[in-house]
């Protein structure tokens, strides 16, 4: 890997934050330039989602939301309104009369967050408050399933909304049911690990970032809680653009995935390194940048840490469908050109 110096940095990264020491991306803020440190490292962070909420231990969504919103708050000088779909994030942050939100926040319904955000943006425009920006957010159920029509409508009208999907691959708030973002073979309450082909069916589901790209909106990105620098950078970039933007963050769910709370970051990282979750950016319908994997890990490294895939490894032998999951990862690697040393701009 080529040595990286502040002088060779691109416009997006004053200092490249890519630490491949001992197989970890962990970045010590003390080691990097002050202006390249995370928003979270700053005492001036907004704590938009503050402590005291009721998320589970190791919740990837709480982590993702905290980083995403604080980054958006910094990018907008605190002039931010959040619209939230029904779901875990809504429930664990606002048990009446408590709230963890330190920004103006609104919850309407499960399937209409994108449309409500459109309305907020329209009101701000008509009131001449151009500096105030809008974020809509929801889980994968509220985004890829029940909220999909409103999401697509917001995209095609190019409304000035950043929609953030915290993707934990299922309906976790209602007790872990399958969504259209649930991966094949995964066990959920509605795709039980029973029968000839236990778990979720192969050949189903959708990857909404690709659909977002097909709308040719100004900005689409996937991100992961395993790389919070990258997540913050993408939020900042999204907020520098007007129009419809979509960010989907892979947020492991210890409860729904049957994983240890302390493995949230590890799982998110493995999802990237196996090619299971491609991390990329696209602008106006074209993929512009891809998070590279230096050396792809076998998908089993990712699967074995999660009880939702335990049926694939029953009685000491591997279910042949593991090969199909590996093929999915390989296809992602090929499609997005994931293997390599550097992030590419295309």
């Amino acid at each position: 890997m080529a040595e990286f110096t502040p002088e060779s940095a691109g416009p997006d990264d004053a200092q490249k934050l890519r630490y491949y020491q001992k197989g970890t991306f962990t970045v010590g803020n003390r080691l990097v330039d002050a202006d390249a440190r995370t928003v979270q490292a700053s005492e001036e962070r907004s704590n938009a989602l503050t402590c005291g909420h009721r998320a589970c231990q190791g919740c990837g969504e709480a982590l993702g939301a905290r980083y995403a919103l604080d980054a958006a708050m910094r990018a907008t000088n605190g002039k931010l309104i959040a619209v939230n779909a029904t779901g875990c994030l809504e429930v664990f942050t606002t048990p009446y009369p408590e709230t963890s939100w330190q920004l103006p926040w609104m919850h309407s319904l499960f399937g209409n967050a994108a449309a409500v955000a459109t309305g907020v943006a329209a009101a701000l425009r008509v009131k001449g408050k151009k500096e105030v920006r809008v974020v809509a957010q929801g889980g994968d159920g509220g985004t890829t399933d029940i909220g999909f029509q409103c999401l697509s409508g917001m995209f095609e009208r190019n409304d000035d909304v950043l929609y953030i999907c915290y993707d934990n691959e299922g309906y976790m708030n209602t007790g872990v049911q399958r969504s259209s973002a649930t991966p094949p073979a995964a066990r959920t309450a509605t795709t039980p690990a029973a029968g000839d082909e236990p778990g979720n069916v192969f050949g189903t589901g959708k990857f909404v970032p690709r659909i977002a790209v097909a709308h040719r909106i100004p900005y689409v990105a996937t991100a992961t809680v395993a790389d919070l620098h990258d997540l913050e950078r993408k939020v900042a970039k999204a907020m520098s653009i007007r129009g419809a933007r979509y960010l989907q963050i892979d947020v492991p769910c210890p409860l729904g995935w049957g994983a240890a709370s302390h493995d949230t970051i590890r799982l998110a990282r493995l999802a990237v390194e196996t090619g299971f979750y491609p991390i990329f950016e696209a602008e106006h319908g074209k993929v512009t940048r891809v998070r590279k994997i230096r050396k792809p890990r076998p998908v089993t490294d990712y699967l074995r840490l999660q009880k939702r895939f335990a049926h694939l490894f029953r009685d000491g032998h591997e279910d042949p469908r593991v090969t199909r999951l590996q093929a999915m990862c390989d296809a992602n690697i090929e499609e997005y050109g994931l293997v390599g040393d550097d992030e590419t701009s295309g």
Partner: peptide, 15 residues
């Protein structure tokens, strides 16, 4: 569904 949802957002933002 979107029509009224957009109106909900707009109204909540003061329009």
């Amino acid at each position: 569904f979107a029509a009224l949802s957009v109106a909900i957002g707009a109204s909540a933002a003061g329009a």
